[in-house]
Design a protein around this nucleic acid. Sequence first.
RNA 1: GGCCCUAUCGUCUAGUGGUUAGGACAACAGGUUUUCAAUCUGUUAACCAGAGUUCGAUUCUCUGUAGGGUCACCA
Length: 513
Amino acid sequence: MPKAKRFKLMETGEVRTRFAPSPTGLFHIGGARTALFNYLFAKQKQGSFVLRIEDTDVERSKPEFEKDIIASLKWLGIEWTEGPDINNGCGPYRQSERVKTYEKYLKRLLAENKAYYCFCSPEELEAKRQDQMARGQAPKYDGKCSSLSAAQIKKNIEADKKFVIRLKIQEKKIIFQDVIRGKIEFDTKLIGDFVIAKDIRTPLFYLAGAIDDYEMKISHVIRGEEHISNTPKQILIQEALGFLKPVYGHIPLILAPDRSKLSKRHGAVAVMEYKKAGYLPEALVNFLAFLGWNPGGEREIFSLSSLVKEFSLENVQKAGAIFNQKRLDFINGFYIRQKSIEKLTEFCLPYLIEAKFIEPVNNKTKVAKNYKIIETGEKISSSFLGKIIGLYQTRIKKLSEITDFVDFFFKKELNYPKGLLKWQNMDWPEIVSILSELEKMLSAIKKQNWNLTNLQNILLLGAEKLPNRGYLLWPLRVALTGKESSAGPFEVAEILGKEKVLQRIKEAKEKND
RNA sequence: GGCCCUAUCGUCUAGUGGUUAGGACAACAGGUUUUCAAUCUGUUAACCAGAGUUCGAUUCUCUGUAGGGUCACCA
């Protein structure tokens, strides 16, 4: 559909968006993107962004998941103006604390005969559903209990019969304008009288959501595409209660590579897992923003604040977007390269500590200045660690990768196959003689002259006699790092220091597999 | 199965009633390099199909096809 024909945003009144997760599992990236879009839109319009915790499902809601939601959003830098911790007049913002409100509206619906008690058993309903499905019909409640008399209801309740509360609906067409998709139409005769509460104090999602959106004066409901078919139900509730309707915008789903909705079975989905793996929040935000949206130009790197400026619901895509890990890695690598060495070091330290390479010496402050190499007992400073990490700034895509790159700096002995020392068609005696040559050249350098420039000058001079530099530099690099690929030998040698360099060359010569 | 949504390179996307259909990631090739990155240059690669409207359709309309979502006493 051409953009001109799309529904134009109503610019009346204050923009108030909300993000309403339910704390029933670890907070995942789909939710993060929905929160991000709501945040960006509200912030751009100088409106409010409400965080509401939808914990009406007592069975599945857990406080630790709410903590995870909050920690994740904070880490990403997505800030709400109202929420469980910031009451701004529309609270409380936890649905479990709002039962009185729901009860009020529920009683009204019952009194006005717009909702009714239903005593059908789950088994009975399930059987009917199966039957309807088998006959190719839309499964819906047949309204059996809608005509129960007040006396019957009273009798059932007194007999302690289990019940639910259903909304009585009229057959009609529900039409709404979706900001992203345009006109969407539903026929309510396919819906049936649906359940809005388990009892007077436990409302279901449709009811609680509709009531809260109204009470919290939400102007725009921006949520995932999976909610499109819930929208007519919520509109029905709004109509029954005489509520004003918010503007709806359904954003496309984040898809797995197989084009199904991204879920746990596809791998990491929790925001905190990405943090642990060493993704930077600005990278994740930038990446997520471009999943289903783009500003139209060719710029692709955006900070959160520049996204606030550029974001527009009109430019949100309608089709689902596949979560492309490679692209995330690229963006993360980009942001890693932008970091100062000091910052990058600070970010990498926890990974080195966790890998048991180092430990902080006087661990009084949050970020220690001095560390000890666990294997060797050597004391090193964080600025020294910065040198090591700086070597790999252009090489890591995520922070956690640092440990595999720099492990050789922290090990007493290197463990690599002898054959790795071989460059092109060298044989072992040649390798040994090159290593001896290296020993001679390097031991001649005085300790105070042990720096990158000198090392480079001396070694390159030495390499001139050889067919190519690799004859000298490859065995040296392998002897120092024990790796097929690494940072350059000069840089590594400088950091390692004369003593260790000579020691490692000696060990290389003595290798026997 | 009913209902709803969707459809441009492998992926994320720009764009148009007439364009050499643009960019980014990925892939590949090359420069630079001892290696791996970074960096620079280049290459491959797309309008789902059919019909209609039109001088002309990737773009507008319809049909089909494909994919997805949803059909709970979850949210």
